[in-house]
Design a protein around this nucleic acid. Sequence first.
DNA 1: TCTGGGGTCCTAGGACCC
DNA 2: TCTGGGGTCCTAGGACCC
Length: 427
Amino acid sequence: MRKKVFALVDCNNFYVSCERVFNASIQNKPTIVLSNNDGCVVARSNESKKLGIKMGQPVFECQDIIKKHKIQVFSSNYSLYADLSKRVMGILATFSPRMEVYSIDEAFLELTELKLDDYGEFGRTIKAHVFQHTGIPVSIGIAPTKSLGKIANEIVKKDPKYGGVLDLTPLSEQELDALLAQVEIEDVWGIGRKYALFLNNYGITTAKELKYADEKWIRRYLTVTGERIVFEFRGISCIPLEMERPPKQGIMCAKTFGKDITKLEEMQEAVATYAARAAEKLREQDSLTSCLTVFIKTNSFKKDLPQYANSFTVHFAHPTAFTPEIVKYALQGLKAMYKDGYRYKKAGISLTKITPQRSIQPDLFGDFSLTKHYREARLMAIVDAINSIYGRDTLIFAIQGVTRSWKMKQLKLSSHFTTKWSEILTV
DNA sequence: TCTGGGGTCCTAGGACCC
DNA sequence: TCTGGGGTCCTAGGACCC
């Protein structure tokens, strides 16, 4: 069997790069993008990485550095990033019929069937093409397995001498091992904090040492996922390309509030809003749910305040994607556990037991009516269509509230350059 | 009074990813 | 004063079945 070839294409500092596409004045300035509510740093330009800003760091902790070095700060503009991501992926898709969109800023391309002489050259073409058409810089790692592609990408990002593209396929085993020895165990794809600590305790500190570890032992302590990494490092591809995203098995909508909630009515607004959003996502993938969990919690960082956290799960008699019904169950759950006298910081909805819409079963004996189900589905389709044309929340349910004092804080939001006509770039 | 062996399915919890 | 959100997969253990 011929060796496979995968390219991992990863957008550099993606959210920051997106902001830069539409803002020439921040090209070489240190820049960061914040999480919801402007709480933590979730993307950093190379300049801000050098200044010591850490991924996930709370903003208030690095306020001094931000001021001192005039770091450019942005709230998350998720619809802008999603739109640019779509454009990048569209271009990547023209380079191979076999592509896996792995995350908002990463994709695997399988190049095996292209039978090229020089994959590195192909990678450089892709990189140039993506930049020319979107303004987004990418790094590319090419290798016989997905895990090694990740490794190549890791090395490319750290060492400018590769110019953003590294092809491992022509390397000898010794050359490959020398590169693997440079990658620390915690930077390996699939090894998180816990496993890194565990492996370090046993003297496995680099990707190379993991490659030559006893696979039986690895399987026992890191399960099959760990064992797969070992084999992938040895050049045996065990993590297949997944071209189609299967429908989600769980859908979540959870957010911290812009300000604490102390009243049940406000909490009902928030919970109803999240439930309605989750129901929307459910319908986007043509699914139904029959189980909902609602949770609420106070701010656990504030140790001196009274703490309360609870969740409530509701199982439905019939699967549904009808917003009023899902909202009703969510509010029932909320009522069952809500307690007065606390300052709530966060709430969320999670939908599980998700089934495809076409699997719906008429109930011979119960009160379930197929006619009613279709009527509800048509109504929702209309609501969704209106909201998609005129903007989210054009049509909402009264319980979701109109004041929304608890809404996310986003003080440094850039314009929706590509998704709202009113905010299109002016020159 | 003695009481096997082999399944499946479900759930909770823990690991991971970006 | 200020600390994100949304996913996946795997395993162990319990319930239940024959």
